[in-house]
């Protein structure tokens, strides 16, 4: 199990659009992927799971992956979160 930590940086937090980007990216890896912001793991490939995090801007999140491409997966997801999901400030 590979784990990495980051902070949600886009102003709107992990709402539906960024969550969809995240699960789409997660689905491209064969590893099992989990996200956790302190209240237990959710499946990183499930949109409903990622939405339950309700991870707002500034909240810490850990990305875990288990499988052959786990390292790549964790890095890619952290990069996506850090990129701010290409969101323009103030836009929902």
């Amino acid at each position: 199990m590979i784990e990495g930590k980051t902070t949600i940086s886009n102003q709107m937090g992990l709402h539906a659009r960024p969550a969809a980007q995240l699960v789409k990216l997660a689905a491209t890896f064969s590893s099992k992927i989990f996200l956790d912001n302190g209240s237990g793991d959710v499946n990183g490939k499930s949109i409903m799971g990622v939405l339950t995090l309700a991870a707002e801007c500034g909240s810490d999140i850990s990305v875990k992956a288990d499988g052959t491409d786990a390292e790549k997966a964790v890095q890619a997801i952290i990069d996506l979160i850090d990129s701010g999901f290409g969101e323009v400030a103030g836009e929902a």
Partner: peptide
């Protein structure tokens, strides 16, 4: 999505 955005704003 609106519900989620509202919740996250409240949390923040």
């Amino acid at each position: 999505n609106d519900r989620l955005v509202r919740q996250m704003a409240e949390k923040r």
